[in-house]
C-alpha cells in the first residue's frame, strides 16, 4: 500500500519525474535521492508529474522545499503537474501555489521551459 516509485525520463532538455504511490516519511528519501542525482548531473529543468501519486505527507512536501532554491540559483525550476485535488489541497493550505508553478498537465509545464522563462 505504501509503495512509492519514481520514473525518470528526459526529453527536450527537461527532466520529468513521475511519482507513483505513497510519498511519506519512509519513502521521502527516495525523492531526495532523485533530486540530488539530477543536481549532481547539473540538470536543473525539472517537471514533477503527480498523476499517480495517491498520498503526500509533510516529509514529502519538505523535499520540494529543500531543493527549490538550489535549482533556481542555477537558473532552473521545479514545476509541478497533474495533481489530484487531495494532493493539491495540502500544497494549497501551505501557500505553495505562490512558491511553485503548478500546471494541470505535463505538456504545459514543459512548454514553459521551452518558452525560455526559466532555463
Amino acid at each position: 500500500m505504501s509503495d512509492f516509485k519514481i520514473h525518470h525520463r528526459e526529453g527536450e532538455g527537461v527532466n520529468v519525474l513521475e511519482l507513483k504511490g505513497y510519498l511519506d516519511a519512509h519513502t521521502a528519501p527516495d525523492l531526495e535521492n532523485a533530486f540530488q542525482q539530477l543536481l549532481n548531473e547539473k540538470r536543473y529543468r525539472i517537471v514533477v508529474n503527480f498523476k499517480d501519486l495517491s498520498y503526500i505527507s509533510s516529509a514529502g512536501l519538505g523535499v520540494f522545499m529543500a531543493y527549490i532554491e538550489d535549482v533556481r540559483k542555477n537558473k532552473g525550476d521545479i514545476k509541478l503537474t497533474n495533481m489530484t485535488p487531495k494532493v493539491y489541497n495540502v500544497f494549497d493550505l501551505l501557500g505553495f501555489p505562490i512558491l511553485y508553478e503548478i500546471y494541470k498537465d505535463e505538456k504545459e509545464a514543459i512548454g514553459k521551459f521551452k518558452d525560455g522563462k526559466k532555463q
Binding site: 505527507s57 509533510s58 519538505g62 522545499m65 501557500g95
Partner: peptide
C-alpha cells in the same frame, strides 16, 4: 503555526505537519 504567505527565502524548515493537522 507556519505562515503560508511567506516567500521561500523567509521560511524555516519544520512545522508544516502540525500546521496541516490543525487545518485538516
Amino acid at each position: 503555526d507556519v505562515n503560508p504567505s511567506l516567500s521561500i527565502e523567509k521560511r524555516r524548515p519544520g512545522g508544516l505537519g502540525i500546521f496541516l493537522i490543525k487545518k485538516l
